[in-house]
Amino acid sequence: MITLRDVRKSYEDEVTIGPVDLQIPTGGITALVGPNGAGKSTLLTMIGRLLGMDDGAIEIAGYDVASTASKDLARIVSILRQENHFITRLTVRQLVGFGRFPYSKGRLTQHCEDTISKAIDFLELTELEHRYLDQLSGGQRQRAYVAMVLCQETDHVLLDEPLNNLDMKHSVQMMRHLKRAATELDRTIIVVLHDINFAGRYADHICAVKDGRVVEFGTPATIMTDEVLTRVFDTEVQVIDGPNGALAVYY
């Protein structure tokens, strides 16, 4: 369970995020959706303690994010940001291995190696594990980053737009991987998505953010309606019945 109480953040004077009060239940995938600049990344990075908040409190599984030691939090929550550029020359396996740092402090044990292999296999990177990151396509690299945070074996995983750079096939695969991670590995996954239809199909809960505030929170069935989506995205949206559930049409 992740709890946000009266969380606020202001950038300069004009942009204010919050106040946000939110409870994200344990288990499953929660999708954060909303227009550009709504504050999704800001909320996510504050939950992942990469960004300090100005006011309020965030608790993850009972641990207060502001007061819990960072090294302890690293075993509870992991976060992947929207943009990543690691300048060093690393192989996929080395990168994924960094996910073990909170446990091994850099000295990999056999258990670590097994976990690394599992994370690599989980994201179907087995063939690529000894490739350098700069020899991968954007989408493959994106999967390697996700493998790294899964390798951290935290109950809570925060991902900012993991479908960035992914084509149709790999977007679907990534969402299936995440779904499997949520069900098979019992992770609580919070993911920022731009395609509302992916959220509708794969998420267990959808949280809609607009102008720095949470405007809707609920199951896909309650969010995927003409009225709600039109209001959240400021765009005429029609929801129709697709072969696999509700489908939002906006063009």
Binding site: L50, S70, A74, R81, F86, F101
Partner: peptide, 20 residues
């Protein structure tokens, strides 16, 4: 040295892995 290895990943990844 091992901490320096983590630092090469940049600020956010370092904090994520529990190093300040």
């Amino acid at each position: 040295a091992r901490r320096l290895n983590v630092l090469t990943l940049g600020r956010d990844a370092t904090n994520n892995l529990g190093l300040d």
